[in-house]
């Protein structure tokens, strides 16, 4: 069990439903019996459309929300134990969707220092951590800039650096690319992959962009508050029909292969890349 950085057991989350006067008249189930185990050092993606429960799930991993029923453990700490809140948040850093609304400092390096300052890290070590974090996201050249002048992708990398400077074991990114243009998306995804591969930080990427999850070690698909599918990207993308039913996209080559199969052509399942398609096509026309 030690190798699991995150574990949830029968996690249930209910949001209260209120009438117009603010009286609680019922509840809405946002997470229903979620059981997930995430291995230390892995790159995990959580997919789902808006309202599927994926953002609620993310907030549980950072003790921003607490389980209505069931349990969540982060780095061995139970998130519902009040005395461990800061340990949970130090172990699992969180990056949000809107890059503007999570940068606190008026200078890049000072924003990155915000987390360590809150943790009471000594001045000299704060500088070391800020240097390390800015290098890890390749934003060192902008350290004295104002965040307002940066592009969306750069702002999001600053936000990631702010989390990296807290030296977490795991980073949760809640739709970090939803508001970015294609260039910004690429920047952020390659930064995340770099952190996972070279710094060994566990990454949990919450998204609805399919092309971002192809390299993940494991994919969870959420729908109607439940984990509907889980497996490697190849296993997930073999089931195009189900993904479409849930309202998710697949990469174009995957969809093309699926359409061909529907027309009786014996393409194999789970084609994810152009290379794979070309190879399979070659086998067929020969």
């Amino acid at each position: 069990m030690m190798s699991n950085i995150i574990r949830t057991k029968n996690l249930i989350h209910d949001y209260p439903k209120c009438d117009e006067d603010g009286n609680v008249i019922g509840s809405y189930r946002a997470l229903d019996d979620v059981n997930i185990e995430i291995e230390q050092g892995s790159f995990v993606a959580v997919l789902g459309h808006n309202g599927s429960g994926k953002s609620t799930f993310a907030k549980h991993l950072n003790a921003i929300l607490y389980p209505t029923e069931g349990c969540v453990w982060v780095n061995g700490y139970d998130t519902s134990a009040e005395e461990d809140v800061w340990n949970v948040r130090q172990s699992a850093g969180m990056v949000f969707q809107n890059p503007d609304n999570q940068i606190i400092g008026t200078v890049v390096e000072e924003d990155v220092a915000f987390g360590p300052e809150n943790m009471g890290v000594k001045t000299k070590e704060i500088w070391d951590r800020v240097n390390y974090a800015l290098n890890a996201v390749r934003m060192n050249a902008y350290r004295e800039h104002s965040p307002n002048k940066l592009s969306g992708g750069q702002k999001q990398r600053v936000a990631i650096a702010g989390v990296v400077a807290m030296r977490p074991k795991c980073i949760i990114l809640d739709e970090p690319t939803a508001m970015l243009d294609p260039v910004g998306r690429k920047e952020v995804i390659s930064t995340i992959k770099h952190l996972n591969k070279t710094e060994g930080i566990t990454v949990i990427l919450i998204t609805h962009y399919m092309d971002e999850v192809i390299d993940a070690d494991r994919v969870y698909v959420m729908n109607n508050a439940k984990v509907e599918m889980q497996g490697t990207p190849r296993e997930i993308f073999s089931n195009v029909e189900k993904l479409k039913e849930i309202g998710l996209d697949v990469p174009q080559v995957t969809e093309l292969a699926y359409e061909l199969r529907k027309r009786g052509i014996s393409m194999r399942d789970g084609i994810l890349t152009i290379d794979e398609f070309v190879e399979e096509y070659g086998r067929l026309v020969k």
Binding site: N62, I64, W86, R89, Q90, G93, M94, F96, N98, N101, Q102, I104, E109, E110, A113, F114, G115, P116, E117, N118, M119, G120, V121, K122, T123, I126, W127, V130, G162, V163, M166
Partner: peptide, 20 residues
């Protein structure tokens, strides 16, 4: 959003806070 982000980055007021 900002309040949530500050929470997530362990902000808990001025006490015990250090400075860069």
């Amino acid at each position: 959003d900002l309040a949530t982000a500050m929470d997530a980055r362990c902000y808990r007021g001025g006490e015990g806070r250090t400075k860069m």
